[in-house]
């Protein structure tokens, strides 16, 4: 089966991102496919490479990046939600005259159409959030 995953909450503050990650791993372990993971609302904060969690804790951002690298998963951060919350890639930073970017490896910034498309293309779209 082909799964779409939506993550609506930020890392550490809320368990949604942890649960979504563990769900994604379970999906892959069962031989299913992940069409896309879409990050919305505060979920876009899963895509900043500047988080510095304590060393004895899980690194939520790196975990997503590693999953994407290992399994070729499409991690998409909503552009409108990202702009409000200061998540920028190189071209977005340039376009809006900001002096830095912070997008983590394996993530890309794109529009909400990518979420609707995931709903259309995946067999199941599973939402993680409040």
């Amino acid at each position: 089966m082909k799964f779409g995953i939506m993550v609506n909450e930020g890392p550490y503050q809320h368990q949604a991102s942890d649960t979504a990650y563990l769900f994604a791993k379970a999906v892959l372990a069962k031989g299913h496919e992940i069409y896309r993971v879409f990050f919305y609302h505060d979920g876009v904060n899963n895509g900043t490479r500047l988080t510095v969690p304590p060393q004895d804790d899980r690194n939520i951002v790196n975990r997503w990046s590693e999953l994407a690298a290992k399994h070729g998963i499409d991690l998409v951060v909503c552009v409108a939600a990202a702009q409000r919350r200061g998540i920028l890639d190189e071209s977005e930073a340039k376009r809006h005259g900001r002096d830095a970017n912070n997008i983590a490896a394996g993530f890309r910034i794109s529009g909400l159409g990518q979420l609707v498309e995931a709903g259309i293309q995946a067999d199941r779209l599973v939402v993680f959030g409040d």
Partner: peptide
């Protein structure tokens, strides 16, 4: 932000 998704979904003829 829900309303923003709703408006985008209109473009997909769903």
């Amino acid at each position: 932000e829900s309303l923003e998704v709703v408006l985008i979904s209109a473009a997909f003829d769903q």
